[in-house]
Amino acid sequence: MSRTVLDLWVGFFVAIGIAALFFLSLKVGSFGGFNNVPTYVIQAPFDNIGGLKVRAPVKSAGVVVGRVTDIRFDTEAYRAVVSLAVESRYEFPRDTIATILTSGLLGEQYVGLEPGGDVDMLKDGDAVQITQSAVVLEKLIGQFLFNRAAEPPAN
């Protein structure tokens, strides 16, 4: 085996290896979609976050605008404080409502932002004033049963 042919093969190997890495990061993974984009962080206190996890998407009108970066428990108000990193190109009014929603019946939970009508925009470090907690299925079923018991029988 002469040197030049060997070099050709090694070059071919390295090239398709790197091509595979590119394939994995561009076609398979969502590269660049959110990693290098400038963001600003807003806080959202919730009474109950249900099964929300760090890295869960933040959506507005169904479009992913950010990610949950941190969840912690506030010992003074006894509420969960969720930090949302929102892409800088998306701005939201100060009276935006943050809701914890579920995609599908058993899907993952995400934070939905419903913009209000304020002229001032949320800035880095601000807190969302109005929030709506996650729907806890057990509570819902309990309420439903309670209401049924209160109703008079139909016939």
């Binding site: 890495l21 994995l24 990061s25 076609k27 398979v28 993974g29 969502s30 590269f31 660049g32 979609g33 990693n35 890295r55």
Partner: peptide, 17 residues
């Protein structure tokens, strides 16, 4: 492809692999 792209994170999955 789209469900794959939505679930696979570059930093978290590809780089760790």
């Amino acid at each position: 492809w789209s469900q794959m792209q939505a679930a696979v994170d570059f930093r978290y999955d590809v780089v760790n692999g």
